[in-house]
Nucleic acid binder design. Structure first.
Lengths: 125, 125
DNA sequence: TATCTTAGATTACAACTGTAATCATAACTA
DNA sequence: TAGTTATGATTACAGTTGTAATCTAAGATA
């Protein structure tokens, strides 16, 4: 049931999660880094609307686009699906891979330890 | 430069990482859970060979297939790419999402803490 | 040896993606 | 009001993917 948003489309979602509603022109502007033609970005907006993950209100001849799904929920979905597909659900292996392969700063390590401490006690086991 | 292996193809890789070399027939057997036709599995093997991530030695008329890439390396690649594409490289957010959204057992929490402790001191930062 | 199997190679085909260009039309401008 | 513009809608087109079926030829079998 997982939401189907392609790689390229995700970049558009990210823009809208940062700020919305936006016109297509504004979305195009904020996607300068990607060097997509304005036409390409419009295509993505269109597809995202058809997929039901972006909505719009009309404002004269133009549309004001907004995300129709929550970023957190989307990330949780994507993460779950990544865990299942790549690590076959083995979360220990997934976490080990990330922790092992990334250079983590002291700050990041502390942050993560904090997360674990908060978690401790809450999950009944 | 990341390795291009599709969702369905990953299941074939998983089989070969568990045991290899295997004939196509053996791969098909081990993929019973997926209800793919034998033809479909053969197609995947073929594509994987063309992509250079599976190799084979001939054994008479049949091939003995083996992975041509390391599972660990593949997982690291996939993870890196997932982090970049979905979390735009923000590893704290990624880890927080996993830790928050999954029910983690005491065992898993302890394991993860162990990882972090090991890591501590090694990363110079 | 002639025939049957069966394994890999080739071909099929629709949906999804990346990447746009063209079309139709509503709104702005002269 | 008539022409210009810019926006969303439609169309394009090749590559990837999921999901096979068909073709070809080398072994196995009668």
């Amino acid at each position: 049931m997982s939401i189907r948003v392609s790689e390229a489309e995700k970049n558009v979602m990210d823009i809208l999660w940062q700020e919305s509603p936006l016109t297509s022109t504004e979305v195009v502007e904020r996607l300068q880094t990607q060097d997509w033609s304005e036409k390409t970005v419009k295509t993505f907006l269109n597809r995202l609307v058809k997929k039901g993950v972006v909505t719009f209100q009309k404002d004269g001849r133009r549309y004001l686009y907004s995300p129709a799904i929550e970023r957190d929920e989307f990330l949780a979905d994507e993460s779950e699906s990544f865990l299942d597909k790549v690590f076959k659900g083995n979360i220990k292996e997934l976490l080990a891979t990330f922790v092992d392969n990334k250079q983590l700063s002291k700050d990041e390590l502390d942050y993560l330890k904090g997360l674990l401490d908060d978690k401790e006690g809450r999950d009944v086991k």
